[in-house]
């Protein structure tokens, strides 16, 4: 299947997931957005040789995924697709930083490998938490939350428009891409010149569409200001959710629980 159709299905699936009705989905989007942000900052604030202390942070996405009934493998695959950049940058660490930091029996592990693993763990956590956020909140609600939290309205509206028309334009673009594919042979017809025309046409159509949308807005009294009749309600649940998770993150940041637990167990055994 072509890339564009995959992207379309992907967006559609994320959108469907966000439409579920679970306790996590019902929470005010602001609480989830804020908590996710705190989560990411705490994770990223760990030192570069830290691995074990970060592990407890997997609890947050795990809990959100199960309460939100989100498909684990699907989200994990999505993370893997985007990992290459972090991998590419991170993989230099073992090459450059060869000092031995740790010995387990006969194996010695260099600082570079540890910091590389730390990058990968952080990547999975941060990328995962964002996907979880969107899958259990929905893009439109995140935009509303952004606006309520002080983002300029025009920017929020802009995001909403963008999201709304992605669905329309991807279908349009994939029709054009299919039409091109059906008449391209041996790689001919897929070069840059045809690509330029294709995009140029799509762009002109898009601009015409924007004009029609503008007209439709004018017809219904648009005066430069977009108004939305929607209230977000944050109650006790949201406060507890945000405070409890943040407290948990900070506690995990301060105390290396795995290390404490691990020493306890190894002491018992040895």
């Amino acid at each position: 299947m072509s890339r564009i159709q995959t992207a379309f299905l992907d967006l559609g699936l994320m959108d469907t997931l966000s439409g579920k009705d679970t306790p996590v989905h019902r929470l005010d989007p602001r609480a989830k957005l804020l908590t996710t942000l705190i989560f990411i900052i705490t994770v990223v604030s760990f030192g570069k040789y830290e691995i074990s202390a970060i592990i407890p942070f997997f609890i947050f996405p795990a809990v959100m995924m199960s309460l939100g009934e989100l498909p684990f493998y699907y989200l994990f695959r999505k993370i893997l697709i985007v990992i290459p950049f972090a991998f590419m940058i991170g993989i230099f660490n073992p090459l450059i930083d060869r000092e031995i930091l740790m010995r387990i029996g006969l194996f010695s592990i260099s600082g570079g490998w540890i910091s590389f693993c730390s990058i990968m763990v952080k990547f999975i956590l941060t990328a995962g938490s964002v996907l979880v956020l969107i899958a259990c909140t929905g893009f439109n609600s995140v935009c509303m939350a952004l606006e309520k939290m002080g983002a300029p309205r025009i920017f929020a509206v802009q995001l909403l428009f963008l999201y709304r028309y992605i669905f329309v334009l991807i279908v349009e673009a994939s029709r054009m891409a299919n039409a091109r594919a059906l008449r391209s042979f041996d790689g001919k017809g897929k070069g840059m010149k045809v690509f330029g025309y294709l995009l140029g046409h799509l762009l002109l159509r898009t601009i015409d569409r924007a004009q029609r949308i503008y007209l439709a807005m004018l017809c219904r009294g648009f005066d430069g200001e977009i108004r939305v009749n929607r209230h977000l309600e944050a109650g006790m649940r949201e406060v507890i959710f945000t405070v409890a998770w943040s407290a948990f993150f900070i506690a995990m940041r301060v105390y290396n629980i795995p290390l404490i637990a691990g020493s306890f167990i190894t002491e018992l055994i040895l």
Binding site: N140, F161, A216, M217
Partner: peptide, 27 residues
């Protein structure tokens, strides 16, 4: 004069059906 466009995708630009129908009255 209420105008219904040929392509509903041009007319329905808000995130949900509710928001879209409310767009005019809010204005």
């Amino acid at each position: 004069v209420g105008m219904v466009f040929q392509d509903p995708d041009d007319q329905l630009f808000m995130p949900t059906v509710y928001d879209d129908v409310a767009f005019g009255p809010l204005n």
